[in-house]
Design a protein around this nucleic acid. Structure first.
Ligand SMILES: [Mn+2]
Ligand SMILES: [Mn+2]
Ligand SMILES: [Zn+2]
Ligand SMILES: [Zn+2]
Lengths: 139, 139
DNA sequence: CCTTAATATGAAAATAAATTGCAACTTATA
DNA sequence: TATAAGTTGCAATTTATTTTCATATTAAGG
């Protein structure tokens, strides 16, 4: 991860009145370098062998803190599991309805102004559903 | 609900090898006449006093059946509760981040062809997040 | 109409995801 | 370093959804 991004992370954490802990750093780094929009449990699985003190509870709590601080965002899903994104700027997603993978698209979603229907919307995101290339091969 | 829509419902149910039951009719009618994209529990709450034999379990099972039959679709959400839509054609949604309300937008989302990035996507939907008019008043 | 096989239902138990209480521990600041 | 504020892990809890299983209903055929 870029040094600037880690610095920005520390600043935002501090300015939210939160403390910098190894667990928070680890969770944020892990989301930031993932491209698959992991859920809490997936993050925990990836971290539990690398990071000494990390519990699933803390991953859940960390995600809530990072979300409040504006460092991560939830990704809209059709399932009953919340998934997270460290890319907080508006962008679009492709979801494989077969394997559940979620990846970023280059497609730029319209701005709230362009949609402007029900007063002030803040952000927009386009969600596309289909079958990813890997899933098409081994049908 | 239009007679044609109810007939279409019965046909699709049958062609999926499912039986027409009062519970299924009631759940489908309720979603179809709702504009707020209810979850299973909300549907149950709205139906339990109107329909003699209806249980939350059956509402869950009915939603799964209707989804398989292509009569309802899930709406992407940021929460851990699945919400449903009887409007199955591609369209866009506005979500109030304050009260959780989800309403349809007229904005027509791009077609999968227009996005075309990762092979074959099937459907696209634009999600817009903001504060609804009611929530803006009583802030 | 009746019969019957296939399917659907409700209640309760089970599972899965996320949250909370609490005592022990860190962090940041002075 | 002392210390107050904030954080952690574990276990218990809550919330959402699914499954089990015995009973009931549907649709088709006679
Ligand atoms: Mn993303
Ligand atoms: Mn809709
Ligand atoms: Zn896939
Ligand atoms: Zn609102």
């Amino acid at each position: 991860m870029l040094k600037t991004k880690l610095e920005e992370f520390k600043e935002k954490i501090k300015s939210s009145g939160l403390k910098i802990t190894p667990q928070r750093v680890a969770v944020y780094k892990e989301i930031a370098q993932s491209s698959d929009h992991p859920c809490a449990e997936e993050l925990y699985e990836r971290l539990k062998d690398k990071i000494e003190g990390i519990s699933l509870t803390t991953v859940y709590r960390t995600l809530a803190s990072l979300e409040k601080a504006g460092l991560v965002k939830r990704v809209p899903t059709l399932k009953d599991k919340i998934r997270y994104d460290a890319k907080v700027e508006p962008h679009s997603h492709f979801v494989c309805v077969n394997c559940g993978k979620i990846v970023d698209l280059d497609y730029v979603p319209p701005t709230p102004e362009e949609v402007k229907e029900l007063g002030d919307s803040l952000t927009c995101t386009l969600m596309c559903y289909g079958i990813c290339k890997e899933c098409q091969v081994d049908e």
